[in-house]
Design a protein around this nucleic acid. Structure first.
Lengths: 125, 125
DNA sequence: TCATCGGTTCAATGATTAATGAATTGATGA
DNA sequence: TCATCAATTCATTAATCATTGAACCGATGA
């Protein structure tokens, strides 16, 4: 009575759900989540967008963001422990830069996707 | 005396930092951050990995994860408001699935990257 | 209509996490 | 060595977020 494409659920609870195996190991999943979590904060993501324009030292970033150096340093610490940025000393200054091209792509892709999208609007219910 | 690739900083604070323009608008950045934040939690990411194997209803996901339905439902709510998953009703059940291929790619890429990596280890200092 | 089942929402609680200023470290130049 | 400047760390406080069970909603079948 319902020969459609999607499988029907006439049995009491039969969604074609054969037991799923543990798809990914926890360690991998944890690292991926940590990476996403580091990206999932507007101030930190803005910092990355800034670094995408080129390396910069902490005080310059602090000036751009109009925040204290302590605050910026803490944000960079999170990004660094997720391996998203690198740092090197240069005299009194510490220069930060995006870790690699992969990160650059990740940031740009996310921003591009986020600026498109929103066409359909997200479901409110 | 130092004709290398990286610009040198001999002036008191000259890192080739011409004033940066506001690279991205806040709204876009905010949406991108929300998306990352939704992905940045191991239990939620695990849920997505599970859904990457195919659609499933809440009670099955709850069983797989050995959690209450309320907990799973809340997690799905976060994923849904970030437009990462879709849902449809099927009789008494509500079936969740990844929103689109883009999300599938995103999840797989992240997991792939997280399982490679770690080769160099993250900087402890 | 009523009872039941799957799912969601609500409100309270506990746990993470970000921001902030003070103290500290490290490098430079006097 | 000392003073200074850039940056980090530390400890406190505030804010955010995840979890949980109870109440509620919506579809189904008796």
């Amino acid at each position: 009575m319902n020969p459609q494409a999607e499988p029907v659920c006439d049995e009491p609870h039969a969604h074609r759900r054969d037991r799923r195996k543990p798809s990914v190991d926890e360690a991998t999943l944890g690292r991926a989540a940590e990476l996403f979590a580091a990206l999932g904060d507007p101030p930190r993501l803005r910092l990355l967008a800034l670094l995408a324009q080129g390396p910069a030292c902490v005080s310059d970033l602090a000036e751009d963001e109009q925040e204290g150096m302590s605050t910026i340093s803490q944000r960079l610490k999170v990004l660094r422990s997720a391996s998203l940025v690198r740092r090197r000393r240069q005299g009194k200054h510490v220069i930060y830069a995006l870790a690699d091209q992969h990160v650059v792509d990740l940031v740009f892709n996310a921003l591009a996707h986020a600026s498109e999208a929103q066409v359909v609007g997200k479901p409110k219910e």
